[in-house]
């Protein structure tokens, strides 16, 4: 199953750091996302973009996860040569990730 089938995401940027939220449509899926979507898996999925560390924050208060991806925006919006220098399109690249559910 693809992440986009059960969750949505918004990308943000701070300098050369990319932030990706992961929010299940149904809050009941939060625990499963915590189990399935580890920082390591996100780093592997976005390897083409993210050169640095990925840190995952759990937000049980709003049943959401936040992934903070370092060295991910080709130097950051002000000097990047990328067409999408903010990385705004990357939320939907993230949601293409496969997860295993029973």
């Amino acid at each position: 199953m693809k992440l986009y089938e059960i969750a949505h995401s918004r990308a943000g940027d701070k300098g050369n750091t990319l932030t990706l939220s992961l929010i299940p449509y149904d809050e009941k899926d939060y625990a499963m996302l915590c189990e399935q979507v580890t920082a390591e898996k996100v780093k592997a999925h976005l390897l083409h973009f993210v050169k640095g560390e990925v840190i995952r924050y759990e937000m049980p208060n709003i049943s959401s996860l936040l992934f903070v991806c370092h060295d991910a925006l080709s130097g950051g919006v002000t000097i990047s040569l990328a067409l999408d220098a903010h990385g705004k399109t990357l939320s939907y690249v993230f949601l293409e990730m496969e997860i295993d559910i029973n």
Binding site: H8, S9, R10, G12, D13, K14, T17, T19, S21, I23, Y57, M59, P60, N61, I62, S64, L66, V68
Partner: peptide, 24 residues
């Protein structure tokens, strides 16, 4: 929810000149 987490690099310590806020 999408906007609460937008551009946040540490939700436990969101730093502004006014205060350090815990979004959790």
């Amino acid at each position: 929810k999408e906007q609460l987490l937008y551009e946040v690099t540490n939700p436990k310590e969101y730093i502004t000149p006014d205060v350090v806020t815990d979004f959790t």
